[in-house]
Design a binder for these strands. Structure first.
Lengths: 149, 149
DNA sequence: GCACAATCTGAATATTCATGCAAGCATTCA
DNA sequence: TGAATGCTTGCATGAATATTCAGATTGTGC
């Protein structure tokens, strides 16, 4: 029973946004699996599910890889839509963007909380990204490039 | 104030396991930052922190990348300590392990909830991993190999 | 099949978390 | 300056979640 239920839970949260455990319990009941929130709480623990921010500002449950994907997806979208070029200068990375969208892209960089990135400064069409050490510049740039497409 | 607090929060949870928001608020107070759980809740939302399973069976707060790392680290440890060889046969992957540790390794594979993996079967020193389609075998094997060392 | 152990679950509850609201402060604009 | 606006926070509280405990169910060895 439990194994099946776990599979169904993964399927449900893969398809729809589930905001609370009660909601998940209800979704299971719709599918003929009768459980209470207590059991769902335990299932969530065993499945290593996470409560992550949903697009609508609330929370939802997700698996780790989906959560990761959701985060980077948003980042990539913003980033690839606005970045024009990426250049290194010492321990500083200079990113050129479309006019007006530097702030949003810098915001996206900040929200990643990458430890090698010690700070960003956005103008109108330019972002300065300060990297902790020169050694780390290379890999950070690479990740930026990969994400810019 | 908020920006500083956010930085301190990231530092704290990077160093110690914080199980509840109250605990995090207390840790902040120790460092001279006077806040209540309510504020911590909002900070956690803004920082996209996650409540993930800790090694001790309880929960703790972590950033997305740390959570990811924690998961795969455990997996890699178990896996690399016991796996001897990995072979493909059609849509089946056969993993040879040290005698007695197949079950644990299979458990680790299961816990990844990889969608291409439809099931595992563990004997004493052998695991069968059923892959959804032959096309996907290659990439799954690659990931296994990468993790086995 | 029958005890026994182990696992699973719901009900109730304790704990933890999110948020509406109002107060406090800073900033802007006239 | 002083009203207007916006941002941040604590307080209080309702909402959501984790867990204890006891009963139910399943599995196991005999």
């Amino acid at each position: 029973m439990k194994a099946i239920r776990h599979a169904v839970i993964l399927e449900i949260i893969g398809k729809e946004d589930v905001e609370t455990q009660e909601e998940l319990a209800a979704a299971l009941r719709e599918r003929g699996i009768l459980v209470t929130q207590a059991t769902v709480s335990r299932d969530i623990k065993e499945l290593h599910l996470l409560k992550v921010l949903a697009d609508n500002g609330g929370y939802k449950y997700a698996t780790l890889d989906k959560a990761e994907k959701g985060m980077t997806d948003r980042f990539i979208r913003i980033f690839s839509e606005s970045v024009v070029s990426i250049t290194a200068a010492n321990n500083l990375i200079v990113i050129k963007t479309l006019t007006g969208s530097a702030a949003a892209a810098a915001e996206a960089v900040d929200s990643m909380h990458w430890s090698p990135v010690v700070g960003t400064l956005a103008g109108d069409n330019t972002i300065f990204v300060a990297v902790r050490s020169i050694d780390e510049v290379e890999s950070v740039i690479e990740r930026f490039r990969a994400m810019a497409k």
